[in-house]
């Protein structure tokens, strides 16, 4: 399969989404990511028992923190996608990209980067 997904998505590999912690998602936001999402295995299909369930709870914790600090909680999300389901992986990348584009650039980005982003968007 030669599936396309938006080039703005940068993938960070982890052995299991259970390894993803609150601080990892926060650091991504803090350093200027417009959005960050976790793509875990389907629920009930974790190779390490329940890593994806843990990841889901942590994503919720980050959403709460973002709300508290005045950012849109929608900038972080948890998705479940089977490792063999390439089309869904690409669809999620597009969905999240569209969602984040609608929210606009992160206010934590450097102003010059934001200006360039807005220009490009127009």
């Amino acid at each position: 399969m030669r599936l396309n997904y938006p080039p703005n998505v940068r993938i960070v590999n982890v052995p299991c989404t259970g390894r993803v912690d609150v601080i990892h998602l926060l650091r991504a936001i803090e350093t200027g990511a417009d959005g960050v999402y976790v793509a875990g295995c389907m629920e009930g299909e974790c190779h390490f028992r329940n890593g994806n369930i843990k990841a889901k709870r942590r994503v919720l914790a980050v959403k709460k923190i973002l709300q508290e600090v005045g950012l849109e909680p929608e900038r972080v999300e948890m998705f479940n996608v089977s490792a063999s389901d390439g089309p869904r992986f690409a669809a999620i990348a597009r969905e999240m990209t569209e969602r984040v584009r609608a929210l606009g650039p992160s206010p934590l980005r450097d102003p010059e980067v934001c200006a360039a982003w807005m220009e490009a968007a127009q």
Binding site: I23, R27, I29, E30, I65, V69, P107, L108
Partner: peptide, 18 residues
Amino acid sequence: TKEVGILGSALRIARKKQ
């Protein structure tokens, strides 16, 4: 250590946004 990291990050995010 972990919670210090999370709170530190959250405070920086909040204030940078402001």
